[in-house]
């Protein structure tokens, strides 16, 4: 089953004071996210990631095009209770304690009164906030607020979690915990759509990704298709001798046919070989590639 389906989703914003002119933030987005997968929405700042998410949540309305979530049209009465959402750089009611805030959102999501406190405590514990449940939000750090935001997004056990930059503001350990949480959500049967511009995060957990550039879909497909092996090239990482010691680590990508001659040359120079691996096309390469280049990759990757 399809969890999210966008058909020609387009959004124009009107800018200017007197003579308003339309600026296209999202252009005819065609996208499908399958149920139970982790889907990464990638792109530079201003690429249209947050616009897409806001359209899906009806925080803004499309200029044209339609979308369906969990088989239901956007705005269907029973839909919102099945979705968990974390906005980018969240800010919450700072006069509340962390537990009170999560309980409030549980209440809005329709969690029965008798279960709210336990659910809020459970969600906060899952995001590593067990010790700070009774702390007022105004005294929380940015990372803690981000964790509370994640807790409110999962407190009602949603079928679909839409997370806008969920790792933003977190230290490396926190980011790893969020990645684990996302994997755990998938294990429990939920679908996760998250936006990020931190490519390593997407590479580690996404089943499929979409790359947006200037409001247009530049690529959509399984991560394997993006980061697939290029058997014809080899990546060598080594350190050369310099001034009696070892120099800086260097990385070289060479044709597979040149491998042995290059290794011989490095051995003659007494260089230390760190690794020899088949070259992988990384997500970053595609992310930075120009649209024409991506169009070539799209044929293989467009599997949604």
């Amino acid at each position: 089953m399809v969890a999210i389906e966008c058909q020609g989703l387009t959004k124009d914003f009107h800018v200017g004071f007197w003579r308003k002119r339309p600026v296209r933030a999202l252009d005819a987005l065609e996208l499908e996210v399958a149920e139970g997968e982790i889907f990464g929405l990638l792109g530079h700042n201003g690429a249209g990631k947050t616009t897409t998410i806001k359209l899906l949540l009806r925080l803004i309305f499309p200029t044209s095009g339609t979308a369906r979530i969990l088989g239901r049209p956007l705005g269907a009465p029973d839909l919102a209770a099945r979705i968990g959402y974390l906005p980018e750089n969240p800010y919450f009611y700072d006069y509340l304690k962390c537990r009170e805030l999560v309980e409030y959102y549980a209440e809005l999501a329709g969690v029965p009164a008798g279960e709210r406190r336990a659910r809020a405590q459970e969600a906060l514990a899952r995001v590593g906030m067990a010790e700070a449940m009774e702390q007022p939000l105004r005294k929380c750090s940015k990372g803690m607020v981000q964790r509370v935001g994640l807790a409110q997004a999962i407190v009602h056990r949603p079928q679909l979690a839409i997370l806008d930059e969920p790792m933003s503001g977190l230290d490396p350990a926190g980011r790893a915990e969020v990645r684990d949480l996302i994997l755990e959500l998938r294990q429990q049967g939920a679908t996760v759509l998250f936006s990020t511009h931190i490519l390593s995060d997407a590479e580690q957990i996404c089943d499929r990704v979409a790359i947006l550039k200037r409001g247009r879909l530049a690529f959509a497909g399984p991560l394997d298709a993006v980061a697939g092996r290029e058997e014809s090239e080899i990546e060598i990482v080594f350190r050369e001798r310099a001034g009696g010691g070892l120099g800086l680590v260097r990385r070289e990508t060479i044709a597979a046919a040149e491998l042995w001659s290059r290794l011989e040359a490095l051995r003659a120079k007494q260089a230390q070989i760190v690794s020899v691996n088949p070259a992988r096309r990384r997500l970053e390469d595609l992310f930075r590639a120009e649209p024409a280049e991506r169009a070539a990759g799209r044929g293989a990757g467009q599997g949604n």
Binding site: A80, Y85, L86, Q152
Partner: peptide
Amino acid sequence: ERRTLYTLLAHPV
């Protein structure tokens, strides 16, 4: 302005 409304309206409200 503080975007607290986003999370609220993402709920069944």
